[in-house]
Design a protein around this nucleic acid. Structure first.
Length: 349
DNA sequence: CAGGCGTGGAC
DNA sequence: TGTCCAAGCCT
């Protein structure tokens, strides 16, 4: 991309805002939790909050079916608050970052118990809820309540870094990028402004191959390329090894509930050994098997988490066991993806 | 406050 | 294959 960039004076905030809002009027994405610009309606605060939590570090295509399932099954925050933990965790299975589901339920119950089932309408009130950080509080305040909050997510950081050719690398540049975004916030259409910036980042000012030739902020932009944001090098990812125990009884599989905190916390899972740097020999693994049985190798899977890669061997046996939950094949989908993959391989599916 | 915390898709 | 993510939050 070799466009010539002639950035406007930094003072011309009103013109920049007008250009982006006009672009948004024509190009706003239609999403299930949204209302179109100039519709005269506000989005349901529960829908906005739920969608924002699901979209944390998660793509729109991945989150959308979960959003539709949740809102169909639990149409209000009070309905969600009344749901059993196991139902909500199972419905979240596959979406990742399971602390979000635990906090989601805690948040819904706090809203039901402490706020009469009404989502708080200020950044401060929202920020006090579990799982609601600076970004989500600002996003809900702006989008659901039209408050002039500074909504800064990864999209907005990228747009600011390019608009102003910020040389500081991420994550160090975060405060600087947030301050640049704050200069553009105004009382006019704050919800649309926030969504316009994020839509621009998602569809035009993309991480790779930005569409600078059709960008409504081309004349404002100091970069007109993907040369920004600069990024600090990230640490490499270690590998760990584990063994998963696929214990069957007839057509059923034994599942356990993982401890409430930490990796995959609170989720149904296959029993496993520890996940450690050194691969497990058969003898080492069998010494810590959950039950004595005729364990046989049934394959292995690779799975990549945020901060390590896992090689998980699957050992299978037919037996009985105490303190487990027996599930049929359909119940496997209540597990995180790593265990679903392991179960499928072990069962030969 | 740097690191823990998932997943599936793009290239 | 490996690399880089995508609308962050919590401790």
């Amino acid at each position: 991309m070799a466009l010539s960039c002639i950035a406007q004076p930094m003072s011309d905030v009103a013109a920049l805002r007008a250009r982006l809002l006009a672009w948004y009027d024509e190009n706003a994405r239609a999403l299930p939790w949204r209302v179109p610009p100039h519709s005269g309606r506000r989005a349901d605060p529960y829908f906005v909050w739920l969608s924002e939590v699901m979209l944390q570090q998660t793509t729109v295509p991945h989150a959308t079916p979960y959003f539709l399932t949740f809102t169909s099954r639990w149409p209000t925050v009070s309905a969600l608050a009344a749901a059993p933990d196991a139902d909500v965790m199972a419905a979240w299975a596959g979406l990742g970052y399971y602390a979000r589901a635990r906090n989601l339920l805690a948040c819904a119950r706090a809203v039901a118990a402490d706020h009469g089932g009404v989502v708080p309408d200020t950044e401060e009130g929202l920020r006090a809820l579990p799982g609601v950080g600076a970004y989500t509080a600002a996003a809900v305040a702006a989008i659901a309540f039209d408050r002039p909050a500074n909504v800064v997510d990864g999209n907005v950081e990228r747009v600011m870094a390019r608009l102003y050719a910020v040389e500081t690398p991420l994550p160090e540049a975060k405060p600087e990028l947030k301050a640049l975004a704050a200069r553009l916030v105004a009382d006019d259409r704050p919800g649309d402004w926030a969504q316009a910036l994020m839509d621009l980042g998602a569809t035009v000012c993309r991480p790779k191959s930005p569409l600078c030739t059709i960008c409504p902020l081309l004349a404002d932009c100091a970069a007109c390329s993907d040369a920004y944001p600069k990024k600090s090098p990230k640490a490499d990812r270690p590998r760990r090894h584990g063994v998963a125990w696929l214990l069957t009884k007839g057509g059923k599989v034994a599942l356990v509930r993982r401890p409430p905190k930490g990796l995959l916390g609170g989720m149904l899972a296959l029993p496993t050994t520890d996940w450690r740097a050194m691969p497990w020999t058969d003898a080492e693994a069998l010494a810590v098997a959950p039950v004595s049985a005729a364990w046989k190798g049934a394959g292995s899977i690779e799975h990549v988490f945020t901060h390590f890669a896992l090689t998980l061997r699957v050992m299978r046996a037919e037996s009985d066991a105490p303190d487990v939950e027996w599930t049929d094949r359909s119940g496997l989908e209540a597990m995180p993806s790593v265990f679903l993959k392991a179960a499928r391989v072990g069962l030969g599916l």
